[in-house]
Design a protein around this nucleic acid. Sequence first.
RNA 1: GCGAUCGUAGCUCAGUUGGUUAGAGCACCUGGUUGUGGUCCAGGGGGUCGGGGGUUCGAGUCCCCUCGAUCGCCCCA
Length: 467
Amino acid sequence: MGEQGGKRAAKFQGPKGTRDFYPADMVRRRYIEQAWRTVSIRHGFEEIEGPTFEAADLYAVKSGEAILGELFQAFSGKSPEEVEQVRATGRAPYALRPEFTPTLARMYADRAASLPRPTKWFAIPIHYRAERPQRGRLREFLQWNADVIGDESPQADAEVIAVAVGLFTELGLSGRHITVRLSNRDLVSELLLENGVGEGNVGRALTLLDRRDRMAAEEFTRACGEIGLNAAALAERLGSIQSEMNSALAAMENGEAMPAIARRSPGIEQLKGLLAALDAQGILKWCEFDFSIVRGLAYYTGTVFEITAAGERAVAGGGRYDRLIESFGGPPTPAVGFGMGDVVLSLVLEEHGLMPEGERLAECLGTRPDAFVVSAGDESCDAAVAPLVAELRRAGLHARRSYKATKKIDKLLKDAAACWARFAVILDESWSAGRVQVKDLTDGTQHTIPRAQLAPWIAQRRAGLAV
RNA sequence: GCGAUCGUAGCUCAGUUGGUUAGAGCACCUGGUUGUGGUCCAGGGGGUCGGGGGUUCGAGUCCCCUCGAUCGCCCCA
């Protein structure tokens, strides 16, 4: 911009951390979205969607500082008061959504009285976070969310984990590639209280544990001192309970009954319930306990989990948020859910050669043309291409044509093969007698078909019926 | 927001100690090899070397700034 007239226009680049989806990229995105949608529906979830921006206050307290620092802010610019507010406070009235759970909780709270229990919803929203892009992290991304609302039982926790596992299975991933790491905030909180932390400092302590690996040892020690936490004792207790729980998990995976657990507490009861429910879902082999996971978002309660793949960031993360809906003005409503981003998932699929391409991808997405019409004859054949394509489309077929000027059949067929068409319709000398050549590009056979029977012939043959 | 590396056609890259009109392969378009699907051959379109400034007789090649990308930090999907 700012160039003199006559100079070439300035080129624009897409904003930092965003992606352009050309056709080859879009089909890969659709492949993932289709798997998300198919598996969600298979597990009995119903699709919802909300606004891409919300009142900034929606995120203010519930999400925690971590997300607040990454908010993309938005305002209409229509009123002087609004502009002045942004200028004075640096805070806009709206924010592009950085996550979906607050929107979901708001939507549920609005109609809670008329919604069934449990309500099972999924969404495939686009999200925005103003962080520095890097491997597996962009500023604009898709995130699949699946939530069970109104069911406090561990069966609900297991059900959302099961739909995530179902997705991995659908895409060809297994427990060799993927691990579901389970934890429980109530259990960790109990142990914090038993190891020196006062009632009012539990939240702070959880945040501290969440960052433990990322801070200097002496800094961690000092922070522990401030809240009275005996970190060594806590680590020892958590570690021994963790290995006990993992042994129980392994035993159950071998078909044995759940072993007795030494400790008795509300947190342990939740974990035992979860273990039984995961067993009922048949997905124990994907899971393990990892009590170092507490998660950064402030609204989590009880069960929390992260799903990881070797060498990558977390593919998905989630947990219980039993008080969030109430805090948005709804009735007290337990809920559990997770989010899975498209960026890391794509990397994992690529890494294992599980992202299909070419014909297989076109087949999965239903984008293969049924007929590809080419003219290899005189002007009358050229003129017949457009009406013939239109006729096939009216018959409900996916019909395309070549736009090349050449009459070379090899090049025209190459054109047809490039889009994975099932049949090539060749207009040549026989067109003057009302017939076309149809080549089945799958098996190489060629047939002479009267024009009037072309569409039904292709439709039947596509359906696998004998002609 | 901080650090490191990088930035030449749509893609992958080559460009000699700075020196005349910036190259290749793939892709795209056209034509030929006289008519059937990732052969071969020929031709063509497309880049002011991310952008701006500076040093120099002269910079894609050196210096500064800026934008972007990649990989870490932070945080999380």
